[in-house]
């Protein structure tokens, strides 16, 4: 499931409505008309040192909250090669997927993935009264991390396009020669307006492509495929971030990659 972020920094109202019209022509399924995200940037506290005379190199810690991934906080640092997800939700038998979308897609159904297992609380490893991780960082870890920026995204749309036997001419990953690939799958596009402490900072587009054949496209191919799709659907030009958190890792770290891309895109 390769993902990417495009941040259109000099977006005008017409860029936003234009892109909406453009996508509407493809007859997408509009999944959720109001999603939000909150991205927090923490910087290491310069007064915390190994030795008072040796300054500590600057590091950043990021936390990402996505409204479509409720009660979870994704966190990485700029030195991380893997992410962590914290949860305040407890899984219970009520969370078993009962309702599906009419077409069998379950994008809207809350999955119990990454919830706190009940046995974890039963064993007394947790009191069951968790705090969101970003609030623990701001309240108890101030000696190590200070909150620098909070970037909020709202007024967003979520579009789902069914890509069906789309022939794309993209440069080959190895030789660079133009080759034609046929793609089928689901393309989910989420758009949001970004605000840094109240001022508009750009139009953010989050793209995710899930090939229907379940193939996990290798790192290099991911990028060309996504670039090809963005070109095909005439995405507005902007800062494109499609690096993965750990390019050499074969295990899928979807949320880690996404958090890394937010971190790359939202640097002001």
């Amino acid at each position: 499931m390769p993902s990417a972020i495009v941040l259109v920094q000099n977006a005008s109202p017409s860029t936003i409505t234009g892109f909406h019209d453009q996508l509407s022509n493809e007859l997408p399924k509009i999944l959720n008309s109001n999603w939000q995200f909150e991205f927090k940037i923490f910087k290491n506290n310069p007064f915390s040192r190994v030795d008072p005379s040796v300054p500590t190199p600057t590091t950043f810690l990021y936390t990402l909250y996505l409204s479509y991934f409720p009660q979870k906080i994704i966190s990485i640092t700029n030195n991380s090669t893997s992410s962590i997800i914290t949860s305040v939700a407890v899984s219970s038998s009520n969370d078993i997927k009962t309702e599906y979308d009419s077409d069998g897609d379950d994008d809207e159904v809350r999955k119990p993935d990454f919830d706190v297992p009940a046995s974890h609380i039963m064993s007394n490893a947790s009191t069951g009264l968790s705090n969101p991780w970003d609030s623990v960082l701001t309240s108890k870890l101030q000696s190590l991390w200070t909150l620098r920026q909070v970037i909020k995204g709202d007024n967003g749309n979520v579009y789902k396009l069914h890509v069906n036997q789309l022939a794309l001419t993209i440069p080959d990953a190895v030789s660079g020669e133009p080759t034609t690939v046929t793609l089928s799958g689901a393309l989910i596009i989420k758009t949001a307006n970004c605000f840094l402490h109240g001022s508009f900072k750009g139009f953010l587009i989050e793209v995710e492509f899930t090939p229907s054949d379940g193939q996990i496209v290798e790192s290099v191919m991911r990028k060309v495929v996504l670039r090809g799709l963005m070109e095909h659907y005439k995405f507005p030009l902007g800062k494109l971030c499609l690096e993965r958190l750990n390019e050499y890792e074969n295990v899928e770290d979807k949320y880690g990659d996404l958090c890394h891309q937010y971190a790359q895109a939202l640097q002001f």
Binding site: S82, T86, S130
Partner: peptide
Amino acid sequence: AIYESTITSGNVLPYLTVLGYKMETEFWV
């Protein structure tokens, strides 16, 4: 006052290191 947060995915050990912590001891209750 107790503050807690549960990590449900990812490896906690490298995250603790980047957070600024090192393991002191371990015990079982």
